[in-house]
Design a protein around this nucleic acid. Structure first.
Lengths: 153, 153
DNA sequence: GCAAATTCATACGTATACATATGATGCGGC
DNA sequence: GCCGCATCATATGTATACGTATGAATTTGC
């Protein structure tokens, strides 16, 4: 064992130059998304809404009655994902459901009165949240960034 | 002034102009992250790794032995999150753990032989995944995008 | 030196996010 | 008409992601 000295120097320092994790677009996207979510939770106020719950409510407000899967497509959520989101909003009575008279597979979703009131309050915060997320960028950089980001979504 | 002609039109068609969900940076970040995750799962190959599992393995490879919380900081994961990631990698024997002789609170993590072999195989795919994610952008746009994205992470 | 504050890893609860499977329903092709 | 296929909503399982709480261990502040 006296020869057990530092036999393995190389393995402890592999080729970082080749693939730097924190420079990869996937890692940066994940961190930027994390940061935005944190800002959202900080700034959304006493209205208890997650980003996806907010998205679902805003979209229903925009389009009116809509089926669950259709709402998922409009907000980029899997049917399995939107199901849980809607369920939690329904429990809080922010959303109402009724059977679609024309297609018995579908459930039509709409905002309740309190849902409407809540989303209107949340919208003010939402604009500030977008501004806070983009705050590290200069004015002229923001449009550039959004334009490029849109191409990747 | 003469009464509300278009007063009642508004409720069914609310101010979309004011806040367009799909133009908000948070929504675009979420969708871009979704797209990257899908590309990752498609291209990572028969190596069964999620993006965060891959990140943990790559980072251990880069820095050698490291405590669990420290690894979390290096890969932008909460202590609660990294705990689950490490647990799943440990079950698959891709990671080994030993007590830190200098700090009995800590557990030192390292790659096993198969962990090392697996991450080396995954690295080839990882470069292609980054390229595929950025494929919608022109060459000159990619550096711009990454530079701006880094400011938001 | 020692009490207070911090850090480490874990555990529990909630909320996306998606693959997959299922049963009910609608629709197109023949 | 009706059979095959698609769609809708749900259910289950796995994996982040994080807040909060906990107990053990270490560092600090005085």
């Amino acid at each position: 064992m006296t020869t057990a000295r530092k036999r393995m120097v190389a393995p402890t320092k592999p080729a970082q130059d080749d693939y730097i994790l924190t420079d990869q677009v996937g890692h940066l996207l994940r961190r930027a998304h994390q940061r935005h979510t944190a800002i959202f939770q900080d700034m959304i106020g006493n209205v208890q809404l997650t980003p996806t719950q907010f998205a679902a409510l805003v979209k229903i407000r925009d389009v009116g009655e809509v089926s669950q899967n259709e709402l998922g497509r409009l907000t980029a959520m899997d049917p399995a994902t939107i199901q849980g989101v809607i369920h939690r909003l329904k429990v809080r009575a922010l959303i109402a459901r009724r059977a679609d008279p024309d297609d018995r597979r579908c459930t039509l979703l709409s905002l309740t009165g309190s849902g409407h009131a809540l989303i209107e309050r949340a919208l003010a915060s939402a604009k500030a949240i977008t501004a806070a997320t983009l705050a590290p960028l200069a004015d002229n950089e923001r449009a550039t960034f959004l334009s490029l980001l849109r191409k990747l979504s």
